[in-house]
């Protein structure tokens, strides 16, 4: 898969009915001139009305930002549940068809997306993740911020 422009990814995200957003440790660490990656995660979740599997320590912050359907999860558990024959994880009633990864370092994102079987994956980081079905391209932090802004605008 080649890197996608934010607007292309927005179309992809909107087209999926059963998507699950996963928010990782970097959401609490990356700041763009006063706006954190967690803020962007909250905006994406709200715009698409997505359930959020808040991994690492992101659950508290997302709730504080008004995200409604958020629950603390472990990233590797979600990847494991997806491959199972029956989806019983209570965060969504149906098995997600798309997992959206935001806030994972490239190493973590590669590890997680490469392990997913039975759903498509989107990596919303500043590094292109070839193991994901869809990914933003390589970008500086400033470009990355612009990508996120464009993505949210297009949702």
């Amino acid at each position: 898969m080649s890197a996608k422009r934010p607007s292309e990814l927005a179309t992809c995200l909107k087209s999926k009915k059963r998507a699950l957003l996963l928010t990782g440790a970097l959401c609490n660490e990356l700041n763009f001139d006063g706006k954190s990656l967690l803020d962007y995660a909250a905006e994406i979740a709200k715009k698409l009305k997505l359930p959020v599997a808040a991994t690492a320590n992101t659950a508290k912050g997302l709730k504080e930002r008004g995200v409604e359907k958020v629950a603390k999860k472990y990233a590797a558990e979600i990847v494991d549940f997806i491959r199972g024959p029956e989806w019983k994880e209570p965060i969504t009633t149906e098995k997600p068809e798309l997992l959206i990864f935001l806030g994972y370092s490239p190493k973590v994102a590669r590890g997680l997306t490469s392990g997913v079987k039975g759903a498509e994956t989107v990596a919303l980081g500043n590094v292109y993740i070839k193991e994901a079905n869809y990914s933003l391209g390589d970008a500086s932090l400033k470009q990355y911020q612009q990508n996120l802004e464009q993505l949210i605008k297009a949702l």
């Binding site: 990782g24 440790a25 690492a56 320590n57 472990y74 990233a75 590797a76 973590v108």
Partner: peptide, 12 residues
Amino acid sequence: IPVETREEAVTA
């Protein structure tokens, strides 16, 4: 199982 943060680690 892998975890991301030390808080996840002690809880797990």
